[in-house]
């Protein structure tokens, strides 16, 4: 896995490098489980992906229940 600290400024006379992939997983200090992947080429971010790494399926759990209960389920999506 590449180091997360990359030099962002590169001199122009260096040969182009193959793209590097940076993975930060988990992203901390947020609620939930987030993963970020960043593609870096020659010191520039060329692409990025984010992914939520946790799934509970609350939409599926809610199906068919008494609608008066829905707020108690949905409120638990995030406790922050």
């Amino acid at each position: 896995m590449p180091d997360i600290f990359l030099p962002l400024v590169m001199s122009s006379n260096q040969p182009p490098r193959p793209p590097q992939r940076i993975v930060i997983d988990p992203i901390t200090r947020i609620e939930g489980h987030l993963r970020i992947e960043v593609q870096v080429q020659n010191g520039r971010v060329t692409d990025a992906w984010s992914a939520a790494m946790m799934f509970r399926g609350l939409e599926i759990v809610l199906k068919g229940r008494d609608p008066r209960d829905a707020w108690l389920f949905a409120q638990r999506i995030c406790g922050v």
């Binding site: 930060i24 988990p26 200090r29 922050v80």
Partner: peptide
């Protein structure tokens, strides 16, 4: 503690 800690990524691990 993922929500509180300073390190992220593999440093958190």
């Amino acid at each position: 503690h993922e929500t509180l800690m300073a390190p992220a990524g593999r440093l958190a691990e």
